[in-house]
């Protein structure tokens, strides 16, 4: 945990009496002069940040959970118990959104393996590795709106990708209009746009790997797959764990822009994800309390998926 870095600092005893007599005296005079101002200074420095975080991040979380047990419209503000949740789990659109989350979880290893493999090659100094590193990272800084707009052009039914496919004799694919294909198209574009991010995380993990281990494995005649299996994966277990969790969070919380631009949840609701569902209920249907119930479910889903991943990866890590 990153927390470990801070513990010693926060617990470090104040250093007193290091200065010589005169300096201490002048300091004391100064301190008694502005004693309260100086004593309060840590709080003054931290108060604005705390205020913003509490007011606009932590308080809404509590408010939202509370909100999800009240009604919308005519029943505005009235306590309705679990009605919103009951309605949520009866809504085929929301269930579809949860099923799509299931698909994302299943395809997560692919989304992690791609940057992991590429990072391995870059680490092993494939010709042109510096160039690849910066090129691959580039889409990660583009907005989902820009990425989605570009791929809208490329993937439209009469668009360039289909005309390329036609050249090699493959039938046109309705990338965004076929309800069996659209989710995977959007996910593919998301992976295209974000694999560079995971790639640099992997590379910074590689930087902590002991090169002597690699050299030893190589001189023992290990093949590349053996090196990956026995040196790289165990050595990077923490990085891999981090990438798994952040990639999952990314899939659940940063695909809104792509869905909004590319499919608007369609066709037939087949590309709904919980975040898009929440936005529709809040922004389009004006049902904030109901949307809060969906938010609470999303939070729980993320918590469960995150914890399950960490414990699963811990266990497999130990078996090695």
């Amino acid at each position: 945990m990153p927390l470990g870095d801070f513990t010693p600092l926060l617990a470090r005893p104040a250093r007193a009496g290091r200065a010589d007599g005169t300096a201490t005296a002048s300091r004391r005079r100064r301190q008694t002069g502005g004693l309260s101002a100086e004593r309060l200074s840590p709080f003054v420095l931290i108060a604005p940040a705390v205020l913003v975080i509490v007011l606009f991040r932590l308080w809404p979380l509590l408010l939202g959970v509370n909100f999800s047990f009240t009604g919308d419209g005519e029943r505005n503000g009235a306590a309705v118990g679990l009605d919103n949740y009951a309605e949520l789990f009866a809504d085929p659109l929301f269930l579809g959104a949860l099923r799509n989350v299931g698909w994302l979880v299943l395809l997560l290893p692919v989304a992690v393996a791609i940057p992991g493999t590429l990072a391995t090659f870059i680490y092993l100094r494939v010709p042109g590795h510096r160039f690849y590193r910066s090129v691959y990272f580039f889409p990660a800084v583009l907005s989902p709106v820009i990425v989605g707009s570009i791929f809208n052009l490329l993937l439209s039914f009469d668009g360039p990708v289909n005309s390329l496919l036609e050249v090699v004799g493959l039938g046109p694919v309705d990338w965004l209009g076929d309800s069996d294909v659209a989710l995977f198209t959007v996910l593919g574009v998301h992976i295209w746009a974000t694999f560079g991010m995971a790639l640099v995380v992997f590379l910074s993990g590689f930087a902590t790997l002991d090169p002597a281990l690699l050299d030893a494995a190589r001189s023992d005649g290990a093949t590349l797959p053996q090196v990956i299996r026995h040196v790289i994966i165990p050595g990077l277990s923490r990085t891999i764990q981090f990438v798994f969790v952040t990639t999952m969070i990314g899939m659940l919380t940063s695909m809104f822009g792509l869905i909004y631009v590319m499919t608007s949840g369609g066709p037939g609701g087949s590309t709904y994800l919980p975040e898009y569902y929440i936005w529709i209920q809040q922004g389009q249907m004006n049902r904030p309390a109901f949307a809060s119930a969906a938010s609470t479910v999303l939070f729980l889903v993320m918590l469960v998926v995150g914890l399950a991943q960490v414990s699963f990866l811990r266990r497999t890590g130990k078996e090695d």
């Binding site: 408010l63 919380t253 809040q282 999303l298 939070f299």
Partner: peptide, 17 residues
């Protein structure tokens, strides 16, 4: 802890506030 609260989870009450 605030780092791990995604925007989607708080967006409805935030907009209301």
């Amino acid at each position: 802890a605030a780092l791990f609260v995604p925007f989607q989870v708080i967006m409805v009450p935030l907009v209301r506030t």
